[in-house]
């Protein structure tokens, strides 16, 4: 796999900044009470969705998690309508029924974030099965955290995908935390790649660097598209914030939070881009400003959208 071009590196940077700014904005409007419910942000984990989705097109399906905004953004969801959904408005992709935890856009293969940990993994396997059944070259990507690898759904999907050589990629963002519990209490193995061994599924573990992830994901997606079967990709990353926005993280301790926040996949990438003279400081600033304006616009759009009427409660429950 060739190294990504300068344009691609700039696109990666832009996407990572977009994800970060969307989630920072969500935290802000959430704390102001503008959006209800639960909010799980993935700040610190922007590299994985950016790098993996760079290999996917609109026909490829992904299933995401409760911490899935980054994946939806990277897959290309329209920010305005995504924001409207999080605001609970009928102009949202899911008519205001899903909010953050079930965000979906069928038009570009975002099969839905899932409120059930691991729930989306076999659903993505189903999309891969459909691609194989219809003899297309579409692939499916199941995204999940290492906490989900304790679920039967993960193992059942891996087992079946391996047996049928489904065109899919299992992407695990290993951020070391299953909700409030550290890896030491929920995983006996250091890396999720060990779990893939049991199913004879090729697996690699990479650090939280966008280019490194891009290259590893490229091979996994290529294998899937060529009919060579599933792969697993683990990204070792850090969750900056708590399980949900508002989580005081007493279980984690201040030092560990600071340690995590000291590792910033965007700042590191920015430094590399400057050092390698790929892009100039002022261009980075311009990107930041443009993306900031885009997110601001999306929020303003969402604010102006309308709430569904109670008369729409049963609409479309059955076909």
């Amino acid at each position: 796999m060739s190294r990504p071009s300068k344009e691609m590196l700039t696109e990666f940077y832009t996407m990572m900044v977009r994800i970060r700014k969307v989630e920072e904005m969500l935290m802000e409007v959430f704390s102001r009470g503008e959006i209800p419910g639960f909010l799980h942000v993935s700040i610190g984990q922007e590299a994985a969705p950016t790098a993996v989705c760079a290999h996917l097109n609109a026909n490829d399906c992904i299933s995401t998690t409760h911490r899935g905004h980054g994946w939806a953004v990277a897959k290309g969801i329209e920010i305005r309508r995504a924001m409207a959904e999080l605001f609970g408005k009928r102009e949202g992709f899911c008519l205001g029924r899903s909010g953050s935890m079930h965000l979906a856009d069928a038009g570009i293969g975002i099969m839905g974030a899932n409120g059930i940990v691991g729930g989306g993994i076999p659903i993505a396997a189903g999309a891969a099965f459909a691609a194989q059944y219809k003899k297309t070259d579409h692939v499916a990507v199941a995204t999940f955290g290492e906490g989900a690898t304790g679920e039967g759904a993960f193992h059942e999907a891996m087992n079946f995908a391996a047996i049928r050589r489904l065109p899919m990629v299992f992407v695990c963002e290993n951020n070391g935390w299953a909700e409030f519990s550290p890896k030491s209490v929920h995983m006996p193995v250091e890396s999720v790649t060990s779990r893939a061994l049991a199913y004879d599924i090729p697996a690699v573990s990479v650090s939280n660097k966008v280019v490194e992830i891009y290259e590893a994901a490229g091979e996994a997606v290529r294998r899937a598209r060529k009919g060579e079967g599933p792969s697993l990709l683990e990204i070792r990353c850090d969750r900056w914030y708590g399980h949900y926005v508002g989580d005081a993280q007493k279980y984690r301790g201040k030092e560990r939070v600071e340690e995590a926040m000291a590792k910033d996949c965007i700042a590191d990438f920015e430094a590399e881009l400057i050092k390698g003279k790929v892009i100039r400081r002022k261009d980075l600033d311009r990107i930041q400003a443009e993306v900031g304006a885009e997110v601001e616009d999306a929020v303003n759009f969402a604010r102006q959208c309308t709430y569904p009427d109670v008369s729409e409660m049963l609409e479309g429950l059955y076909v």
Partner: peptide
């Protein structure tokens, strides 16, 4: 395989994709 959860959810994903 003996995996009711896995193959039922797999069917859900396949149905979402037109099967």
């Amino acid at each position: 395989p003996i995996s009711e959860l896995g193959f039922t959810s797999l069917a859900a994903g396949a149905a979402s994709c037109g099967l």
